[in-house]
């Protein structure tokens, strides 16, 4: 079932865990946009290798945990790769080398290369996401977005309060499904469950907002309990990340 990711201190106190979450987000999006410049499989493969290695070493993520986080991505990568290979514009060009042919369907070499390239791109993006998720605490992420990214704090902390309702929403969903079974309805998933979930979520949101208003949330300037500051390590990480992307793109 769905739960908030519990992060061990070992990951949070690691070099990647101590880096600014805003910076890590920036690196993730920068790499993503950089990789969109090429369909060659080598640059995303290089980024994947660097990401997984830094997750293990700089993030101190246990290998088994990393592998479990990456498990769902293989189907997605395969799906995207096949779609691009099978429906490539290159397949209709008669001058290109054919790899496979079945009736009117042709599969050309450039189409296969592009399919592999995009599949590896999905793997690279997902790896970055998994390493980010396993080294970033949600509270620190919002602290960083508010203090370093200047996100309006009412929205940042409002979203964080809602985020922490996830275990509760997961329980609500389980209760709603049991209630359906008790009434003799079939188990499994039904769109009505979503409405029930939203009703309970909005009620919870109302109570949360009332409690926050009662404590004068967002009514004046705030002092801060936790501060997130830029450090030299952030600068090193930013330069390193830019170098990695540069090397990756020069390999393609």
């Amino acid at each position: 079932m769905i739960a908030l990711v519990e992060l061990a201190d070992r990951q949070l106190s690691s070099p990647l865990g101590r880096a600014s979450p805003l910076l890590k987000l920036g690196i993730a999006l920068g790499w993503l946009l950089g990789l969109a410049l090429t369909t060659d499989p080598v640059p995303p493969a290089f980024v994947t290798a660097v990401t997984l290695a830094s997750g293990l070493v700089l993030g101190r993520i246990p290998a088994a945990r990393l592998a479990a986080g990456l498990a769902p991505l293989w189907a997605a990568a395969l799906g995207i790769g096949l779609f691009n290979a099978l429906f490539s514009a290159a397949n209709t060009d008669p001058s290109l080398a054919v790899v496979a042919q079945a009736g009117p369907f042709r599969l050309t070499e450039p189409a296969v290369v592009a399919g592999v390239g995009l599949a590896v791109r999905v793997i690279a993006i997902a790896s970055v996401g998994v390493v980010f998720g396993l080294t970033t605490d949600s509270t620190r992420l919002v602290d960083s977005l508010v203090q370093q990214g200047h996100l309006p704090e009412r929205f940042g902390y409002g979203a964080l309060a809602a985020y922490q309702a996830i275990p509760r929403l997961a329980d609500d969903l389980a209760t709603l499904r049991q209630a359906r079974r008790i009434r003799g309805l079939r188990g499994g998933w039904h769109p009505r469950l979503l409405v029930g979930l939203l009703i309970l979520a909005i009620r919870h949101g109302d109570r949360l907002a009332l409690a926050m208003d009662a404590r004068a949330f967002g009514s004046g300037p705030r002092s801060r309990f936790r501060t997130v500051r830029w450090s030299w390590w952030d600068l090193v990480l930013a330069v390193g990340a830019a170098l990695v992307l540069g090397v990756a793109l020069s390999l393609g």
């Binding site: 997605a76 979203a159 309702a165």
Partner: peptide, 24 residues
């Protein structure tokens, strides 16, 4: 935006975040 608007919008986002995760 009242606090209630912020939290309810966010919690709708959160509920759908969970749905997205399963849907993905």
């Amino acid at each position: 935006w009242r606090t209630r608007d912020i939290v309810v919008t966010a919690i709708i986002g959160v509920a759908f975040g969970v749905v997205f995760w399963a849907w993905g």
